[in-house]
């Protein structure tokens, strides 16, 4: 059934196109949501990578480095449970703030575009189309923001690692461990954005088409 397949794919491309154009036009707001995600993800990636480095130091670092760190008391500090629970709290709060920021920005984007959404519904657009539109939009922002944040976070973590452990930091974290960490960051970043867009998208989809007829702005 090539015909049905074609029909199923085309609208997705179009939806994506419309969503992308929407993001380009509303550049400032796009930037706000994206930077929200970028900051949160930079923090998350930084914590994950530097924790990974610290854990590896305890196991795999050279004798000389370990002795130096033990002398400076850094090793215990890095691996202390208090330190870890404190960072976990901060991380949770940072992610929550970023989540609220995303929901808020997306809700504003919905109220701003009530007429556009109403028009699409007048023209025969289904609720699912509107939901798709918003989810695609947030997906774009999520991916861009997450990648940026991951780059920044990982760079910071390694910069700190090098300043603490010297050139040895580069070889501390095995590639698989690093990749796993980055994958966790990526999934949580994109997941957070799409999750944050669900409620606004649902609000938009439930909007009455009559809204398009409202003449006052």
């Amino acid at each position: 059934m090539p015909e049905t397949e074609k029909i199923a794919i085309l609208p997705y491309r179009k939806v994506f196109q419309i969503a992308w154009q929407g993001l380009r036009i509303r550049l400032v707001k796009t930037f706000l949501v994206t930077s929200c995600i970028t900051l949160a993800l930079a923090f998350l990636t930084y914590i994950l990578v530097s924790n990974g480095l610290a854990a590896q130091v305890a196991e795999r670092a050279s004798e000389a480095l370990r002795q130096r760190l033990a002398r400076e008391g850094l090793l215990e500090q890095m691996l202390s449970p208090e330190q870890r629970s404190q960072t976990a709290w901060m991380l949770g709060i940072a992610l929550m703030i970023s989540f609220v920021g995303i929901v808020n920005a997306m809700l504003i984007s919905v109220t701003e575009r009530f007429r556009e959404i109403g028009t699409m519904k007048c023209l025969g657009g289904l609720d699912s189309f509107i939901v798709k539109l918003y989810l695609f939009e947030s997906l774009c922002q999520g991916v861009v923001g997450t990648l940026l944040g991951m780059a920044i976070g990982a760079a910071l973590a390694y910069a700190e690692g090098v300043s603490r452990f010297g050139a040895e930091a580069w070889s501390l974290l095995p590639a698989t461990a690093l990749l796993r960490t980055l994958a966790i960051s990526f999934l949580s970043g994109v997941g957070l954005t799409v999750l944050g867009a669900l409620y606004p998208a649902w609000t938009a989809a439930r909007m009455e088409p009559v809204e398009a007829m409202r003449n006052e702005v």
């Binding site: 419309i18 154009q21 556009e116 007829m213 003449n215």
Partner: peptide, 10 residues
């Protein structure tokens, strides 16, 4: 519509 209601980004 009175206000045209074109999709502004398209």
């Amino acid at each position: 519509f009175q206000t045209f209601n074109l999709i502004p980004v398209a």
